[in-house]
């Protein structure tokens, strides 16, 4: 069982993830904005964070990832994004300790089962 914080501004995407993850026995919290995520994180640290890049702004997720990393350096962050397609720029994100302190970058769409497996792998490694 892992405690998971899901951060994405799409209610349905979150709901799908939540249903599957809870069914697999995980404890899931959801935040629909960076601000909400900050509030949730103040009340306790989960085992893993799933974070979307684009929320209120195109890069809100990046900023939040750096903040989370500064607060809890050991907390793994899985970052989901369609940003490299949306921007039309053929770059690949590489996790980077300072600029992009995330455990893994997942290209959207990330289907619920695939996310669950990724989360379990990540938490298992810890």
């Amino acid at each position: 069982m892992a405690r998971i914080l899901l951060i994405d501004d799409d209610v349905d995407l979150i709901e799908g993830y939540q249903l599957v993850l809870s069914h697999r026995g995980h404890e899931v919290q959801a935040a629909y904005s960076a601000d909400e995520a900050r509030r949730v994180l103040r009340s306790g640290t989960p085992d893993v964070v799933v974070l979307d890049v684009m929320m209120e702004s195109q890069t809100a997720g990046f900023e939040l990832a750096r903040e989370i990393h500064a607060l809890c350096p050991a907390l793994p962050i899985l970052m989901t994004s369609g940003v490299h397609q949306a921007a039309g720029v053929p770059f690949r994100f590489e996790p980077d300790a300072d600029w992009l302190p995330v455990a893994k970058f997942l290209d959207k769409p990330v289907l619920p089962d695939a996310l669950a497996e990724e989360i379990e792998r990540t938490v298992g490694k810890k």
Binding site: D10, D12, L13, G16, Y17, L19, V20, G82, A86, K108, P109, V110, L111, P112, D113
Partner: peptide, 13 residues
């Protein structure tokens, strides 16, 4: 793509 991802997720579940 946002609604498509949501729908695809639900359909898979």
């Amino acid at each position: 793509k946002s609604p498509l991802s949501a729908i695809e997720g639900y359909l898979q579940i």
